[in-house]
Design a protein around this nucleic acid. Structure first.
Ligand SMILES: [Mn+2]
Ligand SMILES: [Mn+2]
Ligand SMILES: [Zn+2]
Ligand SMILES: [Zn+2]
Lengths: 139, 139
DNA sequence: TCCATAATTTGTATTTATTACAATGTTGAA
DNA sequence: TTCAACATTGTAATAAATACAAATTATGGA
């Protein structure tokens, strides 16, 4: 393994420890994957891509790790698709756009509109946009 | 059947015909259900509630009918939950709020924020809000 | 170091939502 | 009435996610 990656892993260890998460090999690799593949992957996508590199990896670990990250506020669950959950390691305030032609999910780097309700206590919100992406338009 | 319901069904027939949909008994009943149960039900919810009334009803019919309504612009698919699709017969411009305690999905009767993108062609958008509903707050 | 315990991962089974598809049933125009 | 197109049904298949117990690994005190 390259020194770069080792340093990378050391930094990730710190991040996980600060959140009270034991920095296991699998968790570090999943975190690293999310950091370097910013396409809002599903659990299955993470699994498929990492299992080539970690042959003993199980889907259960991927799911439980992604849910752990989300519950600790280190990742965001995106319900932009109907029947699968995507994950975003970038929990900063931004929106998402899904191309209905190619299926890709892009960041819209503006803060999400703030909506309040006179009756309910609104704690969070997600704005999902749909349409045709730049790449698909040009074809 | 009460005369009221017959009139209701007649009106629904007109609505379906105008959209080019054959007004079968099942479709009319599913439409009627959506009109009179405005809680953004899932396909399973619609099926469970209607199968007592229409014993031969199949899940496939419910799914295909709801998808037909959505594709014809007569209903909206809501991805406010992670792994199930809810349907909303009200396709007017409004937002949705889900109570994370009781799970209920409420309407927020304001028009959804309009977001554009300099690169992508945005065709539609959905704003989902999460928090604690009025009822749960009061307990 | 060694051991006991806790934490984590794994693999399998299960659950749940949805779709695929062929067989059956229904309807309306000729 | 007949027939072809359309709609519904039931079963099987697919797919995402979870439940759970067994196996593995890490940790901390003797
Ligand atoms: Mn993002
Ligand atoms: Mn609504
Ligand atoms: Zn595209
Ligand atoms: Zn509530």
């Amino acid at each position: 393994m390259k020194r770069e990656n080792l340093v990378y892993s050391e930094e990730i260890k710190e991040i996980l420890l600060k959140k009270g998460i034991a920095p296991s090999f699998q968790r570090i690799k999943i975190y690293e994957y999310l950091i370097s593949h910013r396409v809002h992957p599903s659990a299955e996508r993470v699994y498929i891509d990492l299992v080539g590199f970690i042959p003993t990896l199980s889907r259960t670990t991927v799911h439980s790790t992604l849910n752990l990250f989300a519950d600790k506020g280190m990742a965001r669950r995106l319900f932009i698709d109907g029947n699968l959950v995507r994950f975003d390691i970038d929990s900063s305030d931004h929106m998402h756009f899904k191309c209905t032609k190619c299926g890709e999910v892009y960041d819209i780097l503006k803060s999400s509109p703030k909506v309040t309700s006179p009756e309910h206590k609104v704690l969070s919100g997600e704005m999902y946009l749909y349409g045709i992406c730049k790449k698909c338009k040009e074809e």
